[in-house]
Amino acid sequence: MIDVRNISKTFEGAEEVKALVDVTTSIEAGDVVVVIGPSGSGKSTFLRCLNKLETADEGGHIYIDGVDVLHPKTDINKVRAEVGMVFQQFNLFPHKTVLQNVTLAQRVVRKRDKGPAREKAMQLLQKVGIHEKANVYPDNLSGGQQQRVAIARALAMDPKVMLFDEPTSALDPEMIGEVLEAMKTLAKEGMTMVVVTHEMGFAREVADRVIFMDHGAIVEEGTPEHFFVNPIHDRTKLFLSQIL
């Protein structure tokens, strides 16, 4: 489903930052991949390169569902419509109600009629358990509720892949559970997911595969059993000992 070959990303600026260094991996349809690693290791950059919110350096390739993402002739908006993304800061549209947040892209990008878009939105809001708040503005919701709306908003596009960038890191502890629950449901339904998170419980329970990144490179990847029971690399061991 996702094929990443030799991707690097350099941020130009006062000083050059190599955020990704020659990353190669592939993700099968239906897989849930959890990306972990210390702060600044390039997890977000990796995720953001997948839907071209950041443009990877020349030389590498990214294929999503067979489409060459970095090819100049590729319509990136078509790719993005197939790839949902959930952000740490939710990024809901504050000037639109919950319902409008979920219908907007359906109407504008998918060109769905009002009725079907609304129906789809209500169905997804129900799924993430927030349909009573359909006509409320995002500012009046708790963080956990906002993040669930953000998930519904991304799902409304019928994406083939969902990307999550630390979806629970900005949440109060008592709200983390509800968001993880929604994500678990999604995983069980067979959604292809790439999740950057520090929630090791989620990784252990849901992940098909865990990727550990450090200094912009993939250090180690494998099943959760492999990872949490007998990791190979010292850096992985050190990181896990700090976080667990």
């Binding site: 919110l53 908006n77 197939e82 993304m85 000037h95 907007l104 990008v109």
Partner: peptide, 27 residues
């Protein structure tokens, strides 16, 4: 307007004009 608003709208597949018209300019 916070950059996250552009990123959220673009990540949903909106093009530049759609993102401006529906998300950024109204705010």
């Amino acid at each position: 307007i916070h950059r996250g608003q552009t990123e959220a709208s673009r990540s949903l597949g909106m093009n530049y004009v759609q993102s401006m018209v529906h998300v950024i300019l109204p705010q």
